[in-house]
């Protein structure tokens, strides 16, 4: 076990201590080992097995089940191109093809200079920003083949690159440390939301729309709205207040569309959803 220093073993034990049963820490522990070694090695698997009193086969079975765990050394940066249906159609396929040509590597392969590992990734929950790329699991929205090439070139040149909806790009290994459960002080970088996330809110504000004002909450809400107007982000706070004062309907709503909604199917068995 000499590959890993005492500090790493200490952090692995710390992760184990966060759960009622230590084995729950296995996924975070594997993330941490990746941040230390750049992949999940046989020595890493054996260390986890020893700490958790499992067989190496049991740990190996877990490490090979999840796509984020890599059994081969990774590049400095992980570049994922979403080629699930919507992103693929919106341009993800063309982006992956261009990047693959440009870098001279295919899916799950690393460039000769060790800088970039390219991967096709599945839906990354940013379809309203399609086509999407991920660098070390940070979002890069609405890409095209040219912007993708420029992005990877900047990464390979060691230039500073920041995610438009996240933090400055460090490295895949540093990202893995955060995923394991150790904060890196970058939480306040980047915006709260990207533009697409705010589309509905902007339209509502433009038109003076809001959720109904609840009777019981009306007085409290009015006070705090007054403060909000004085304090922050004036335009939208004002439009919201105006909307509320103009008396957005409290009643109605329910049942208005009942004629249209036909056969009421029973709620499905719990856990039907995949999400």
């Amino acid at each position: 076990m000499s590959v890993f220093d005492e500090a790493t073993v200490g952090e692995l034990r710390e992760l184990m201590g966060r759960y009622p049963q230590a084995r729950s820490a296995l996924l975070p522990m594997l993330h941490l080992l990746q941040s230390v070694e750049g992949h999940v090695s046989t020595a890493g698997i054996e260390l986890c097995a020893e700490l958790l009193d499992l067989s190496a086969a049991e740990v190996s079975g877990v490490a090979t089940f999840y796509t984020m765990y890599k059994r081969r050394p990774m590049g400095t940066h992980h570049v994922g191109v979403c080629t699930n249906t919507l992103c693929a159609v919106m341009g993800g396929d063309a982006i992956f093809e261009r990047l693959s040509d440009h870098l001279g590597v295919g899916h799950d392969e690393t460039t000769e200079d060790g800088q970039v590992t390219l991967e096709r990734v599945e839906c990354n929950a940013a379809c309203d920003f399609a086509p999407v790329m991920m660098v070390n699991w940070e979002f890069f929205d609405r890409q095209d083949p040219a912007s993708a090439v420029e992005l990877v070139d900047r990464l390979r040149d060691g230039e500073q690159v920041a995610s438009p909806r996240g933090a400055e790009i460090t490295s895949w290994r540093e990202a893995e440390r955060v995923l394991a459960g150790f904060e890196d002080g970058r939480v306040d970088e980047g915006p709260a939301a990207g533009d697409a996330s705010l589309v509905g809110l902007e339209i509502a504000n433009e038109r003076g729309w809001s959720a109904p004002v609840a009777d019981s909450a009306a007085s409290a809400a009015q006070e705090s709205k007054g403060e909000a107007v004085a304090e922050a982000d004036t335009q939208r706070a004002e439009s919201e207040t105006v909307a509320e004062e103009s008396g957005a309907d409290v009643e109605g709503g329910a049942g208005d569309r009942q004629e249209a909604s036909g056969g009421g199917s029973e709620p499905q068995a719990e856990g039907k959803a995949d999400d």
Binding site: G200, L201, A204, G253
Partner: peptide, 11 residues
């Protein structure tokens, strides 16, 4: 009727 959009979670 309520408004067409009703931001609560996203407000």
């Amino acid at each position: 009727m309520t408004d067409v959009l009703t931001p609560v979670l996203s407000a």
